[in-house]
Amino acid sequence: MGLWPGWVQPWQVPFGDAVDAAPKYVVSSSLTDVDWNAELLDGDLVTRIRDLKEQPGRGLFVGGVTLPAALARAGLIDEYALLVHPVLAGHGPRLAAGLADHLTLSLVQRDVFRSGVTALRYRLTDPGGYDT
């Protein structure tokens, strides 16, 4: 779409173009403005995410720890895609911190890469008491 820095390899350009073109939604308690084809979500986050989920498309992808935990508590996550790296940090935020109940998941896909990274995709099979 645009000019890429010199360190970008030709094989990376299709991925970069796809990410660049995709609409992005930002949730922040400190930002007042965003760029890069993004929209700042404000107001009632649960309502805004429910509305976005009803739009046509391939779904929403959420990163981080705090936001996914809030969306899980609201019953708004249907699938979990996890990348497990062969590194133990020993500290930092926990993915499921703050969940009051368990979620039952079913493995949908597993891919192991030469780097040792394992990509896991799980589908929610039982809301575990959360309202949906």
Rank of each mutant, 00 (worst) to 15 (best):
W11V: 01
W11G: 05
Q12D: 13
P14S: 11
P14E: 04
F15D: 04
G16N: 09
G16T: 02
G16M: 09
D17H: 05
V19G: 05
D20G: 12
D20H: 14
D20Q: 02
A21R: 08
A21Y: 06
A22S: 12
P23E: 13
K24M: 06
K24V: 10
Y25K: 03
V26T: 05
V26K: 05
V26S: 06
V27A: 08
S28F: 13
S29I: 06
S30P: 00
L31W: 10
T32H: 09
T32G: 15
D33K: 07
D33R: 11
D35K: 03
D35F: 11
W36S: 03
N37S: 07
N37I: 08
A38F: 07
E39A: 13
L41W: 06
D42W: 11
D42N: 12
G43K: 04
D44I: 00
D44C: 08
L45Y: 02
L45V: 01
L45I: 05
V46I: 14
T47G: 10
T47R: 12
T47L: 14
R48I: 05
R48N: 07
I49R: 03
R50C: 15
D51M: 13
L52R: 01
L52T: 01
E54D: 14
Q55T: 11
Q55L: 12
G57Q: 00
G57K: 01
R58K: 13
G59R: 04
G59N: 03
G59D: 04
L60T: 04
F61G: 05
F61D: 08
F61P: 00
V62L: 14
V62C: 12
G64K: 11
V65R: 11
V65P: 06
T66I: 12
T66S: 15
L67N: 02
A69C: 08
A70K: 09
A70T: 15
L71A: 07
L71S: 03
L71D: 07
A72T: 01
A72N: 06
R73K: 13
R73G: 15
R73L: 13
R73Q: 15
A74S: 08
A74Q: 10
G75F: 06
G75I: 09
L76V: 10
L76R: 03
I77P: 04
I77C: 14
D78G: 04
E79G: 02
E79N: 03
Y80V: 12
Y80F: 15
A81Q: 10
A81E: 12
A81P: 00
A81Y: 02
L82S: 05
L82H: 01
L83W: 02
L83I: 00
V84L: 15
P86Y: 11
P86Q: 13
P86R: 09
P86K: 07
V87N: 01
L88N: 05
A89T: 11
A89V: 15
G90I: 12
H91A: 14
G92Q: 01
G92N: 08
P93V: 10
P93H: 10
R94I: 06
L95T: 13
A96L: 15
A96T: 09
A96H: 07
A96C: 02
A97T: 10
G98M: 07
L99W: 10
D101I: 00
H102C: 05
T104R: 12
T104C: 05
T104N: 08
